[in-house]
Design a protein around this nucleic acid. Structure first.
Lengths: 211, 211
DNA sequence: ATATTTTTCACCCAAATTGGGGACGATAAA
DNA sequence: TTTATCGTCCCCAATTTGGGTGAAAAATAT
């Protein structure tokens, strides 16, 4: 059975090109092409597509918000962004909102068809530059620490317990050291982290993924 | 000029298949195939490949660690994992360690060649199921909040300032409300968050991405 | 228009945290 | 051997925080 496609794109040229591209291919069926995504939910309910292709810049509701709405109501329906934008902001917003693929309009027609096939087979098709952005994001969030505050192991132990919500006294008990020793460590930690309160230390530790 | 490929894989069958696959294709050149990655750095220095294909389960150093080592010394060299494993642990470890692609051995030979081409063109080739895992990860980390602690707007304001390291007094000043009012808000926040100290509140807020 | 929630403020008390000092032994580096 | 760093500990005084209780004005909801 053919893959049922619905396209949201205000560019007439794109709509016609896709239509021409798909009419000759029995694997696909373009069952709808709309200039805006304002009625996306109703349209999808009515025509029950297998996949949605979504532009970003459209009159009325933008494609990124539309993805969010659609994904909430039809969480199983794969959505592929089809757009000219490749700035991180729009890419990640789209993907976080539930889009499974992100294909640039500069993509060759055959590649677009591959993308549709791929998303139907459980993939997440991306144009190369987009995939690379996603990878960079993954690697960045895992990177240890840009800045090195040169905390000693003992200081890290203390800081870890502090972050978990322990009081000085509790830290002293758990580490089996004196209360004053804890204070001493914490003073040094504040010094190295350039903070002066517990909350700042905790905040900085979590935000910069120290420890 | 042909793309120069080095393969690390202890499976003889894989090495021979790839060799056969590439010998007929002028776009690629298999310049080395090794059963382990123990000498990867030296090999790469010597033969200067365009891309590395890396298995995971090998005698001596495993492929995931090898990727880490190689990536540190040759950050520009694209590495594609070529393995049978698709558990999240190995997938994400590989990608975080610097691999740019992740292709399953069940992949059709033509698709593997596509992957190599794609990574050379700035992409991040993934088998469909792997790409989907990466997407899920992206969406999960962005998901708003599993639990709703029903904080009021004012309480969120206070909490935000607390997280930034402000004392009660500073919060009172910035919000232009009384000190006791801040205390009152914070007590309610602690109640709703089920915490009893500033650090716990800050920690929970950042870890669960409240606000 | 009445009920509920939110925001505001107050007082008491005990505990925790801070800021500034200084000190001692062990270990490692120069 | 001398110097530095680390981990340990102590004192004092001032400030901040947490828990309990109560309550009035303002904003929202029903």
């Amino acid at each position: 059975m053919a893959i049922r496609i619905i396209l949201f794109d205000d560019n007439k040229h794109i709509r016609e090109s896709l239509s021409l591209l798909l009419v000759t291919d029995p694997r696909f069926e373009l069952i709808g092409a709309y200039t805006d995504a304002n009625d996306a939910e109703r349209i999808i309910t009515t025509f029950n597509p297998s996949v949605v292709l979504m532009d970003i810049d459209m009159p009325g509701k933008n494609g990124i918000d539309a993805v969010s709405d659609i994904h909430k109501v039809f969480p199983q329906l794969p959505i592929i962004m089809l757009t000219v934008f490749e700035d991180e902001d729009r890419v990640f917003k789209s993907l976080r909102n539930g889009a499974l693929g992100y294909v640039l309009k500069s993509t060759a027609p055959e590649k677009l068809l591959d993308a549709i096939t791929e998303v139907m087979q459980g993939g997440a098709p991306m144009s190369p530059s987009i995939a690379r952005k996603v990878m960079s994001h993954l690697q960045a969030e895992a990177s240890p620490a840009k800045v090195d505050y040169a905390l000693t192991q003992r200081e890290k132990d203390v800081l870890a317990l502090l972050v978990e919500g322990n009081s000085y006294k509790m830290i002293a008990d758990k580490l089996e050291i004196g209360f004053e020793t804890v204070r001493s460590h914490i003073k040094k930690i504040y010094d190295k982290l350039h903070v002066q309160t517990m909350t700042e230390a905790v905040s900085k530790t979590l935000r910069e993924k120290l420890l």
